[in-house]
Amino acid sequence: MLPNSGAPHRAGSRGGLLASELALVFRRRRTWAMLLALGAVPVLIALAVRLTSGPPAGRGPAFLDRVAGNGLFVALVGMLVSIPLFLPLTVAVVAGDTIAGEAGNGTLRYLLLAPASRARLLLIKYAAAAAFCVAATAMVALCGVGIGLLLFPAGPVALLSGDTIPLGESFLRLGLVTAYAAVSLLGLAAVGLFVSTLTDVPVGAMAATAVLSVAAQIMGQLPQLDWLHPWLFTEHWMGFADLLRQPVLWDSFGENAALQAGYVLLFGGLAWARFATKDILS
């Protein structure tokens, strides 16, 4: 559904501000354009594999050579390809827009005059950005599963540990990978929220957030910055392989979640420190 084309939609007729905020984010044409672009990633991968003979084993993204044998791997490869750039880019747009978008639009002052307390507004804005992180990763996974099952055979999946798990459990593992990717983006969303409190120009906040996610990944590649790596919010982004072992190794999931929680607390705190006393002059 693409709203905004004809009849304007309604936001939150009975619910509270959170419901209204979710409706605002998820009924926006821009959000759906981003989600559709994310959904196109696994579709393109699947089509590329289907229409060619497939790459020789060991080349291209990990697991790409397994796609032709099992459609579920489309979702996995799609996630792997989207994590470094596509997913953070869309999250940067949503998170950078949170406060700066309202400020640029002038609606921030009316929300505060309603009154919504600044703390509540910040929390709700973050909650909606976090919901987008979940929706974005789910979109990649769902589109991947859909197109994979359509174009390729499905069946038990051979794991990295060599064990084979039945199809039902494979869906569960894919869900875990999706959750892992969504959690990975929560820190970035908090960074975006903070950047968004610094400016009244949403595009600036979005760009700055996107640049930070790329910069963190580049720093993660430099061996000279080894000491810094454990503190980068991008450090565990590609580390979901442990979820594909039998039994599941939860260590990387836990480390990633703790790191992201730290970022949420730190940048959420910074956003609050900035926003609580900011003069709203927009």
């Binding site: 309604r10 936001a11 007729s13 501000l17 609606t107 009154p115 919504a116 507004l121």
Partner: peptide, 19 residues
């Protein structure tokens, strides 16, 4: 100041929900 893509009514509903 309003959300241009929302209807006038939806805009007021949102601000009322904030209260």
């Amino acid at each position: 100041a309003f959300y241009p893509f929302l209807s006038g009514r939806a805009n007021l509903m949102r601000l009322d929900a904030a209260n």
